[in-house]
Structure formats: C-alpha cells, structure tokens
Write a protein that binds this DNA or RNA. Structure first.
Length: 493
RNA sequence: GGGUGCGUAGCUCAGUCGGUAGAGCAACUGGCUUUUAACCAGUAGGUCCCAGGUUCGACCCCUGGCGCACUCACCA
C-alpha cells in the first residue's frame, strides 16, 4: 500500500471482506451507458420511453449527498453523468452498509428511472453493487485537480475529474480517426515501419541510442520514419502513410516532447504541389468535422483553415526581411553579426538561422512557406526552374511549424552525395554513416513522389485550442520523482 | 543549461515585522426522504518540499538541493 491510501477507506475494505463482500469483484456489469439513459428519460414534463423502466448503470460515484434516509449520488461513466437516488425504503437490506461507500468508488446500480421533485432524472436504486473500492480520496469536488504537476502525473484522476480534459483527448481520437478515413478514401495504405533504426536518418535531430543484446549492436530510436516509407514507394505500394511515434533527444517546451507523433505520407506520381492540396484539404475537413466550421481559435487568435492557404516564397521572405539575397554569403554573414546570430560553421545553417530569427515568428498563416535553398533539404528534389532551390514547403500557423513536405529526391547519385556531405559535417544531429541500403533502394528506381509530414500533437493543439503540447499528450514526459528513483535502485541492487 | 515564480492538512487555498499554523471541501460522529458544491452540530487530521546555517527561538531570514510552472537557448 502506498502513502495515498486513506486509512478510513482501507478499514472499510477490511470490514467489507469481513462481511463477505468482495470489494474488488472479478466481473463487471452489463450496464446501459448513462448518456442513453438520459436520452430515454426525457424531461419531467415530457417523460421519455425509459421512464418507469428498470435500468442498470455502472460507473464512478462522484459524490454523496446524505439526507439520513435518502442519499443522492451522481454516477459518471464515459458517456455522461446522472443522479442515483438511494432510499432506505427501496434498499432496506443493503441500507446498513451505506457507510462503506465513498465518493470515488466504482459501482453498479439497478433501479427505476424517474424524476425528483426538482425534475432531475434519477435512477431510484433497488440494488447497488460495489465494483471496485477507491482507497485513495478523489480530488476536491469543486476545484478538481488544478496543480499541473498532479494533473500530468495522475492523468487517470484528471481525466474523470476534469471533463474538459477528457474532451480534448476524445477530440484527439476523433482527429486521428478522421485522418485515417481521409487518407484511406484517397487510396492510401496505413503501414508500420521500424522504430529501432540501425542508422539515423530522415531528419536532423539528436537521437536516443539503445542497444540490442543479441545482435550486440547499437540502435537509434527513430527520429522520423521517412526513409523506410520511401522504400515502400520503391516497393510499389505507391500511397502509404504512417502515424509514427518519433523520438528526439532534445529539450522540452510548450511545443516539444521527447516522443511525439508525426503523420508521414508518400504518394507516387505526385510532387509538393499535390502535398499542398492534401494539406489544405485535410486540415479544412478536420476542422469542419470537429467544429462545423473551418475557423479555429488558438493562442488568442482566430485562424481560418479554408483552402487555399497563402503561399510565401522562402527566398523572397528572406530578401524582404534582410535586404539581401539568401546566397550572398558576405551580406548574410554581416546580417547575422548584426542580429547576434551565432555562427556554428556551416554557412547554410547560419543563413537558415538568420531566416528563423527574422521571418519565422511572423508567419501567422495558415500558410505554406515554399522553395527552400537546396542545401538545407538533404532529401528534397531540386527545383527544375531554379537549381539553387528545392521543392519543399513547410506549413506555418502563428509562427509554429505544423508540417514539412517535399518533392522527394529520387536520384540515387544526388542522394548519395548529399548523404556524404551530411556525414562529412560531423554534426551530432546528422548520421555518422551513409545509409547505403536506402541509396540502393533508389537505385532500383523510385517514381516521382511527393511526401508530407504533419506534427499530430501540434495539429491537435491547433484544432482543440490548447497552448501546451502537454495538454494534448495523455502522459507528457516528466522527470522521475525521487521516490521512484529509490525504488529503481533497489530493484537493480 | 540560464532566468523568474511557486512548493503549508487527502484536495483547493489563507497565514505569521521570526514566538511550533487556519478555512472550505473530503474523512469521522450525530441529525435530516427531494438535494444539485445540500444543510446543521461536533471530532480528528500537519516532517509548513528536503538538508544545512543564522537565532534564545525558523513555516517565515540566508545558503545549497529537489520538484513543478513560465521563459530563454537547441529542436518539430
């Protein structure tokens, strides 16, 4: 038993066992969802079909209002919350046991559906069964859980104590379901590719490293599924998507969690303009399905996700904000110095840092930032119109990147050289070796392909109006608390 | 990693120019058959985050640590 157990409740568990009542029975109860019972109740003036019938509810007892020979107790399940009335007259045999019940307990109730004098739909209990005793006390009934740490660490309490939190995660589920339907309707196959990668790739980010004992080799938790998904395009699957958990060994923030969910999709015979169309169409239909409108409120602003989104040229935005060309090295270096942007050695990284400093936060959108310098796009195809640029776009809303897409590079020679350049950079965020197998896949021929990645957590933030990524993750990353560390060291000893 | 703020009863929060702490809810006892955060009377509940220091005396002041939130840096 842990320190959160309430002594009085633990005593009740013992007393119940003594009395031959199992406080944790093995079987649940077939019950009618509360939402359905409420539908069938109608109102006191216009009673519904279920009124007068016997119904069974199962859920959490979230309160107890005791009048001596009558107790009102709201019961909650996933579909809603309604009142149960416990009357001495209808429950004479059980009545002496009533003190063994507490707010927070899980119960089943069978009784007649009716109304109170105030017109509240109520199940007048004829039988009440304890399904599981809560030996820990529920949070304060009026304020609920407000401490953010407690809410994140004890999401299992927060979910039922805070209906608006449950609603965010219900919407998250709906969004994922809608995405799947949307892509399946367009002929996409959902696939699963490895999470353990022998070579890092698909994005520049610091990886988590782990070790496979039997193979005696280090493996990386994936930072992106990209290179595997494109192998599937070579394999002829032609339209694939994965809702992938990615892992990046970097800082936490309102918009960053070390593990996060990314939708990646690839389509043969397509390019980045098709990806723009998919993005616009998907985001607007998601908003429409969720809210009945393409307008969403986020971070104190209103955004309209109606297609088409604005297109902004990377190099033009760069020129406008910095009064110089992106490839005018001397001018850009001078500008970087002026802005106090640190030089990490690589010109193109510096150029992009200048861009991010001067342009990115002002990209309110929703908009597509298009056509990036090819040097910062190791997996994107060069633009046929301007060889300095790659066919790539990122989606921005309120200065925050929601997604990234390109016309995929399918020239194995070009890809090999760009990988070599990455390896030569010795950047800890770049792979240490060329992914030869991936180049070989391209050598077998990858059709012209468009690819798109969308950060699902950020998308859910946008669509549900949440400011923090932690509020759209059921169990956001948290530091281990000291007592857990102690437990772990004991186990390891 | 840097900066700012916070950490007091199971929960939500007060509080003290430095003299060992209080409310509401939850719990317990009693009363009440129509409440909606029910109500009324009573009881119990605290390593005031941890460790040092200053002091006759620290929940309060100082130093260090831990945790969380916000923020900056890196990144999506």
């Amino acid at each position: 038993m842990t320190e959160i157990v309430q002594e009085d409740r633990a005593k009740k568990v013992a007393a119940l066992r003594e009395a031959g009542v199992d406080p944790y029975p093995a079987r649940g109860v077939e019950a009618v969802p509360v939402g359905e019972v409420l539908m069938g109740a109608g109102t006191a003036e216009e009673p519904g079909a279920l009124v007068g019938e016997s119904v069974v509810l199962a859920g959490r007892l979230v309160g107890m209002r005791d009048f001596g020979k009558l107790i009102f107790a709201p019961v909650m399940d996933r579909t809603g919350r309604m009142q149960v009335g416990l009357q001495k007259g209808r429950l004479s045999e059980w009545w002496p046991q009533r003190k063994s019940l507490d707010a927070g307990d899980l119960v089943a109730v069978r009784g007649e559906l009716g109304f109170t004098q105030k017109g509240e739909p109520t199940v007048w209990a004829e039988e009440i069964t304890l399904l599981a005793k809560a030996v820990a006390a529920p949070p304060e009934k009026w304020h609920g859980l407000t401490d953010k740490e407690a809410r994140y660490r004890r999401r299992y309490v927060d979910l039922w104590a805070s209906p608006e939190v449950m609603e965010v995660f219900r919407q998250r589920s709906q969004i994922l379901s809608s995405i799947r339907k949307f892509l399946e309707a367009r002929g996409y196959l959902e696939v699963e590719t490895p999470t353990l990668h022998p070579i890092m790739g698909g994005a520049t980010a610091r990886p988590f490293v782990t070790h496979h004992n039997a193979l005696d080799s280090d493996l990386y938790l994936r930072v992106a599924p990209e290179l595997y998904l494109k192998r599937l395009i070579v394999g002829g699957m032609e339209r694939v998507f994965e809702i992938a958990r990615n892992f990046r060994n970097e800082g936490l923030s309102l918009r960053h969690n070390p593990e996060f969910t990314m939708l990646e999709l690839y389509q043969a015979q397509a390019d980045y303009t098709h990806m723009m169309e998919i993005t616009e169409s998907m985001l607007s239909s998601l908003a429409q399905e969720l809210h009945g409108t393409t307008k969403v409120e986020w971070r104190g602003k209103t955004f309209d996700l109606k297609a088409p989104f604005q297109r902004v040229s990377y190099i033009e935005a760069f020129r406008e904000a910095n009064q110089c060309e992106f490839d005018d090295e001397a001018a850009v270096r001078a500008r970087a110095k002026e802005l106090g942007v640190k030089d990490h050695g690589d010109y193109w990284k510096l150029m992009n840092d200048v861009f991010e400093e001067t342009v990115e936060k002002d990209l309110i959108g929703p908009l597509f930032l298009c056509d990036y310098p090819v040097q910062i796009c190791p997996l994107a195809k060069r633009s046929p119109e301007d060889p300095r640029l790659a066919e790539r776009f990122e989606i921005f809303v309120d200065g925050i990147e929601l997604g990234n897409a390109f016309t995929e590079l399918n020239d194995p020679q070009d890809q090999f050289e760009r990988f070599e350049a990455q390896v030569a950079s010795k950047d800890p965020e770049s792979p240490a070796e060329v992914d030869v197998d991936y180049v070989q896949a391209l050598e077998f021929g990858m059709p012209p392909t468009g690819g798109l990645g969308i950060g699902i957590d950020r998308l859910v933030m946008l669509l549900t109006g949440q400011d923090s990524i932690r509020d759209v993750l059921l169990f956001p990353a948290m530091r281990r608390i000291a007592s857990q560390d102690d437990d772990a060291s004991e186990e390891n000893a």
